[in-house]
Amino acid sequence: MALHVKTNVNGDAAEFLCEPDETLLDALRDRLGLTGTKEGCGTGDCGACSVILDGRLVCSCLVLAAEAEGRSVRTIEGMAKGDELTTLQRKFLEHAALQCGVCTPGFLVAAEELLRRNDNPTEEQVRYWLAGNLCRCTGYDKIVRAVLDAAKDMREHAHA
């Protein structure tokens, strides 16, 4: 029997009908049309479907859509303000930190959460925080540089 779920996505009220075994990932993509969140594995092993659920970074493929009732979800679509990219998004472009781009939304969501918690991470901290996000194109080098550079920019901006 379909469930009626009321939730909040990127600051806006959202509601949808879903099956009891439907994942949050499928609901975001198929019910709400938010296809920026990607499915790479469906088993929590690649991080392409990363979203923030009530302040925690999670794989939306491992969350049931029904669990989102009354909670708040943040996805890649909630990141840029209008046509203004976030520092992280800008740094990903400047550093050529994406090739095919399919893992990019997941990396951005994960990296944003890292920088919210730690504005001055070491390279090692970045690498371990992002270990759940697989990228097959870049070898991670430019991604790590983009995150470190974004952190630096954001610190300087905060202190300016």
């Binding site: 991080g47 491992l62 994960a110 890292l114 371990y128 759940g132």
Partner: peptide, 9 residues
């Protein structure tokens, strides 16, 4: 137990 994402759950 798993990645940062799994740690969140």
């Amino acid at each position: 137990i798993g990645s940062t994402q799994i740690q969140g759950r």
